[in-house]
Simulated assay, not measured.
Amino acid sequence: MSFNKITEQDSNYNHLEKMSLEELLININQEDQTVPFAIEKAIPQIKALVEQAVGNLKKGGRLFYIGSGTSGRLGIVDASECPPTFGVPHDLVIGIIAGGDSAIRQAVEFAEDSIEQGWKDLQAYHISNNDIVVGIAASGTTPYVIGALKKCNENKIITGCITCNQNSPLAQIAKYPIEVVVGPEFVTGSSRMKAGTAQKLVLNMISTSTMIQLGHVRGNKMVDMQLSNNKLVDRGIKMVMKELNLSENEAQKLLDKYQSVRLAIKNYRIEN
Rank of each mutant, 00 (worst) to 15 (best):
Q123P: 09
E248H: 04
I270T: 07
P89E: 10
I39A: 09
K266V: 01
Q106F: 06
N27S: 09
F86C: 02
F110Q: 11
A103G: 02
D121V: 02
I212A: 09
T141F: 02
I94L: 06
T197C: 05
R73M: 09
L203V: 05
V35H: 08
C152M: 09
V240Y: 05
F186H: 13
M241W: 05
G67E: 01
V77N: 01
I96D: 03
V180W: 04
A195R: 05
V145M: 10
K238M: 15
E154D: 14
A79V: 09
E154C: 10
A107H: 08
L122A: 09
N167F: 13
F3W: 12
G72M: 12
S228A: 14
E116V: 13
Q45L: 11
E109F: 00
E31Q: 15
M205L: 09
I94K: 05
V133T: 09
V202M: 05
K156A: 09
V180G: 06
C82N: 03
S209I: 03
N29D: 11
L254C: 08
Y176C: 10
S247C: 07
Y176N: 12
R62N: 05
K120F: 06
Q172L: 05
E31F: 06
L244F: 10
F37K: 14
I157Y: 03
Y144G: 01
S190I: 14
G183A: 10
E154P: 01
I146F: 05
I76K: 02
D224Y: 07
E154Y: 05
F3K: 13
A53S: 14
N267L: 09
E23I: 12
S114D: 13
V180M: 04
Q30K: 12
K47S: 15
N220H: 07
K47P: 04
R269S: 11
P83G: 10
G99I: 03
K253A: 14
I136K: 00
E271G: 07
G60P: 00
G140K: 06
Y258H: 14
N27R: 08
K18L: 15
E271P: 00
S260F: 04
W119P: 02
A171F: 04
A264S: 15
T7F: 03
